[in-house]
Design a protein around this nucleic acid. Structure first.
Lengths: 265, 265
DNA sequence: GTTCATTTGTTCGTATGTATC
DNA sequence: CGATACATACGAACAAATGAA
């Protein structure tokens, strides 16, 4: 099974082989064999398996959970195109989106929001704070800001539809596009980690996005942090929307987390 | 200086004020006053300052380093457009790009590379491993793979020009575009942390990119990890290449790191 | 290597205002 | 009205990290 001529180290060969199998969709339930099982299968010591597994875990292809097992990393993949369509992305991956609205309030614009939305300082801003879920697992926590004067009807529309996109449509914004997005990574604050149900030591992806209506007027500023262990982004370069990479197979370590109070879903 | 009518809490007012000053380019040397100094300036307790600073650090606007001080976060901003132009991005931000080539080798394709470049298994692949610097500070470590048969002349061209883009031009690829990119965050491996001269506990941004030539033939697969504390990405949405956000002022905690052996620069 | 000054990080304690029951 | 809980703000002291002498 392994190349005996040793042109490659054993752990490298095993890592390649496992990576192949993971991306090919073997381990359909999302669970890899235990380390002793793999050691037996490849006829090597468990240390060798651990080295191979370590490489793949580093690459983000699999995740290892002490006491539980090794699992195919099933990152949600958000496509960053011209339009923000997170719910559609989720559904296309067979996940059920949900959200939990933490607050809806009209406040004075903070300086950054005023600048990004091109408002006067202290102009009123409608602010929606919410957590997004996929299959009951938290994936993002974000604050979405809108010019309150223009979108006075948005709170009610949002309460009805429970969707920002749908609520915007009700307010006359039939379409909106991504104006600019900044992406960075950092460690979460205590509050963010709590909302995302993740460890403080695990990184988050922060996206700061500005959306505009068809007339190129800025209507939304979003500051969203995504759970780094559960989300990745894909940027389509050309016109082809080809899917590459992880097949998003079976089930994760299972839903150990108690489903929080999810409003929509 | 602060609003006495207390419509907002002190720490919120101070956070807003500091954010404004940071984005306005005050603190031109990139260093904020010490916490006691700020406490004296605003006439509040150091705790109140710390709370305000904590908010801004959470937002990624500033970075706090124990024993050193508080600094304006000066992320390198890479624009993710149709063409990968990292060096040009760097120069436009007044940074001097450099690189350190760790290895240039022709090897058998690993499964992921073969798939992404649409090669047969075990087809020869030219692999360049290198670290990129900006002003002598490591910002990324990456492995770049090319079909070896087509790009037999690339190693020499790369040795001459020390630039992948320039070397590709010499090989007849006058232009190339980003086909697809996947972005995710994770913690670095021990080796990556060493190359990037960063702590193991600080996250990295991983970009997996596939580039194609003008005939849409895939010619390059890159797996690059960026130092999360020093890099962020910007996605231009529309046609306007407007610059928003941090002004990228003065100097970071200073170049504490000894400049490693940098080849080009 | 040791010492020292500087700076942030942490943990006590205390007091006050505000919302809720 | 009181009782309780919570966020805000201040004061003091010590711990930990860093850089330089």
């Amino acid at each position: 099974m392994l190349d005996p001529e040793k042109r490659l180290t054993l752990w490298r060969q095993i890592a390649d082989r496992l990576a192949e199998e993971v991306t090919a969709g073997r381990f359909g339930d999302g669970r890899l064999p235990t380390e002793p099982q793999l050691a037996a299968r490849f006829g090597v010591n468990r240390h060798t398996i651990r080295r191979a597994i370590g490489v793949l875990a580093d690459q983000g292809l699999i995740t290892v959970e002490q006491g539980l097992g090794t699992f195919v990393a099933r990152h949600l993949e958000y496509v960053l195109g011209r339009r923000p369509r997170f719910d559609a992305d989720l559904r296309s991956q067979g996940r059920e989106p949900g959200r939990c609205v933490l607050s809806v309030a009209t406040i004075e614009a903070d300086p950054a929001t005023a600048r990004d939305l091109r408002l006067n300082r202290s102009a009123p801003v409608l602010q929606i704070e919410m957590i997004a879920y996929a299959d009951g697992v938290a994936v993002s926590y974000g604050i979405h800001s809108f010019p309150a004067r223009r979108f006075a009807a948005l709170p009610n529309a949002f309460a009805d539809t429970n969707s920002i996109t749908a609520a915007l449509v009700r307010c006359g914004v039939t379409d909106h596009t991504r104006e600019v997005t900044r992406l960075l990574t950092r460690l979460p604050s205590e509050r963010e980690a709590r909302y995302l149900e993740q460890a403080l030591s695990r990184p988050v992806l922060q996206a700061e996005a500005i959306n505009a209506d068809l007339a190129n007027v800025r209507i939304q500023r979003s500051l969203v942090v995504f759970a780094g262990d559960r989300v990745q982004f894909r940027l389509a370069g050309g016109s082809t929307g080809e899917t590459i990479g992880r097949p998003g197979s079976g089930a994760q370590p299972a839903n150990r987390r108690p489903s929080p109070a999810i409003i929509g879903g």
